[in-house]
């Protein structure tokens, strides 16, 4: 019953919002740069092959970027777990990386790596890196005091402590970081494409082509698809990691 209500309420809000949007558009009270839901829908029916053609490489690059960032974030977090003094430096470096304007970084990377998937993957990785790193480090370093004392009492080695206590304890926060990072990877890939980092194919390329060609419905369609993919990334990551949460989730 409660689950049903959890689904019904957002659905109702969504439908009402669409209806308001559509009627505002029909009444002419929205600027010409805003497409109506009906226009976006018919654009989807007409152009779904083109949309898939452009979305596929974006998705694949987002996935690679996400995985590369996860590997880097967990690797760094493990280094911090074994050498806690490194914590501050790693944090500082990560904040700097997370603050770099990605839109300016893309042209620089294009000169370095040449136009193509590598740039898109790199930007997707940078865009999704920070929440994963924070989740992993916080998870690894915040162990309950009693459990930490237990391992000290048992003269556990640092290796045993990390492997048998810190890593399992880190799972919930690390997973929260992964979930938050999923949408970031997709947005990062789109930013790279948008600023010309990956050639002719890509959702971001399609978006900028539509935008500069004054194709209002197609622009809005690409925006809608981006939103759906980002939400989808969140749910896919949640679904995959739910196994880990069930195994290591805390009492």
């Amino acid at each position: 019953m409660k689950r049903l209500r959890d689904l019904v309420l957002p659905a109702v809000v969504f439908v009402v919002a669409i209806a308001v949007w559509q009627s505002a558009h029909s009444a002419g009270s929205l600027p010409r740069s805003v497409a109506s839901p009906a226009q976006i829908y018919s654009e989807l029916l007409d152009r779904h092959e083109l949309l898939w053609f452009h979305s596929r490489p974006t998705l694949i690059s987002s996935l690679w970027g996400f995985l590369a960032a996860a590997a880097a974030a967990f690797g760094l977090a493990l280094i911090v777990a074994f050498a806690p003094k490194m914590g501050r430096s790693v944090y500082a470096a990560a904040v700097v990386v997370a603050s770099v304007p990605l839109i300016a970084l893309t042209p620089i990377l294009v000169l370095w790596l040449e136009r193509g998937s590598a740039v898109r993957i790199t930007i997707a990785a940078i865009a999704s890196f920070f929440p994963m790193l924070i989740g992993a480090i916080e998870g690894l370093t915040h162990v309950s005091k009693d459990r930490a004392e237990l391992f000290e009492l048992l003269s556990a080695s640092r290796w045993q402590r990390v492997m048998r206590l810190q890593m399992p304890s880190a799972v919930p926060l690390a997973v929260a970081g992964l979930r938050a990072a999923g949408a970031g990877a997709i947005l990062g890939a789109i930013i790279a494409e948008w600023s010309g980092g990956s050639g002719a194919r890509g959702l971001g390329t399609l978006m900028s082509t539509a935008l500069f060609g004054f194709n209002v419905p197609l622009t809005w369609l690409t925006i809608a698809v981006t939103v759906v993919l980002s939400i989808g990334a969140y749910f896919v990551v949640s679904l995959i990691t739910s196994v880990a949460i069930r195994r290591f989730g805390h009492v």
Binding site: D146, L154, R164
Partner: peptide, 24 residues
Amino acid sequence: FVFQDHALLPWRSVVDNIRLPLQL
């Protein structure tokens, strides 16, 4: 040592919690 809030490892079963000192 028995701690106030048990300090069991929630991801381990009863028998694996008891075995922890042996493993360490």
